[in-house]
Design a protein around this nucleic acid. Structure first.
Length: 250
DNA sequence: AATGAATTCAACCGCCAAGAG
DNA sequence: GCTCTTGGCGGTTGAATTCAT
């Protein structure tokens, strides 16, 4: 027999999340980490299904999320990546640390698509224009020697990589030099030690206060832990897969 | 100020692959 | 090898917000 169902959806709350629910979920994850989404709502005292909690965490509560509008550079990169990858939003989002697939998908559907339509340009045409204007960031199969990046003694070839990802890799290298493997693993597995004091509930206003988290940003380890989510989603094999995808579709 | 249209985006739905039993 | 759960993904919806009249 398999496992128990994720949720029966009876008596579960739906719709927008309240501040209190956000706090409960965030507190629980920061203190206990994520083992099983199905059990999280019950243990955190939430009347939500695991899927809903997962979505809320990934798209809204994750500490490493980047807020605000996407820059023009990011928008151009999205157009380029979309030309290569199609609607594989999670793959596209993996190139933008702190951005979610949902956010990029929404941005594409509501703004980029409309903007290109207004200009009577097909997305692929626009991507080609960007390729021509910015050959360095091109997603084409490189004819010359590609850019490379080294991590832990291994050298990866990179032809699509945002500047932020490069910075992230450099930070990782820098911090790796100063930490032994065991302590690093502990920080990756259990982020609660780093985060539990980073926010609290103001009982009077029921507002989430994240002021303290800003004060922790000076700590290199804190910074690194914040970026770990994005870092771990980076996969050198993605590059190969994407190149093959483009090669096949082109 | 009131109203309707357009836009945004958080959240849900349903499907799928992987893995547990 | 089959059934079922889980996590993850892309498509879609609809409430909230903004804009135009």
């Amino acid at each position: 027999m398999g496992r128990q169902p994720c949720c029966d959806k009876v008596g579960l709350k739906r719709g927008p999340w309240t501040t209190d629910e956000d706090c409960r979920l965030m507190n629980f994850i920061l203190e206990n980490g994520i083992q099983c989404w199905r059990t999280i709502p019950k243990l955190a005292g939430l009347l939500r299904c695991g899927k809903s909690c997962r979505l809320r965490w990934i798209n809204y509560l994750r500490p490493d999320l980047k807020r605000g509008m996407l820059s023009e550079t990011e928008e151009n990169q999205i157009i380029q990546l979309h030309a290569c990858l199609g609607n594989r939003w999670s793959k596209i989002a993996s190139h933008f640390p702190g951005r979610t697939d949902n956010e990029i998908k929404n941005h594409w559907n509501t703004r980029i698509k409309k903007r290109l339509k207004d200009q009577h340009i097909e997305p692929k045409e626009k991507a080609e224009l960007i390729f021509e204007m910015m050959p360095e960031s091109s997603s084409h199969i490189p004819e010359t020697k590609p850019k490379t990046n080294e991590m832990n003694g291994r050298r990866y070839e990179i032809d699509i990589l945002s500047d932020e990802t490069t910075i992230l890799l450099n930070n990782y290298e820098m911090i790796s030099e100063n930490l032994d493997e065991a302590s690093l693993t502990n920080h990756v597995v259990n982020t609660s030690a780093s985060y539990s004091p980073s926010f609290c509930v103001e009982e009077s206003s029921s507002k989430l206060s994240i002021e303290k988290s800003a004060s922790t940003l000076g700590d290199p380890m804190q910074q690194w832990v914040q970026s770990t989510h994005s870092m771990l989603s980076w996969d050198p094999f993605n590059q190969l897969e994407e190149q093959l995808f483009y090669f096949r579709s082109g």
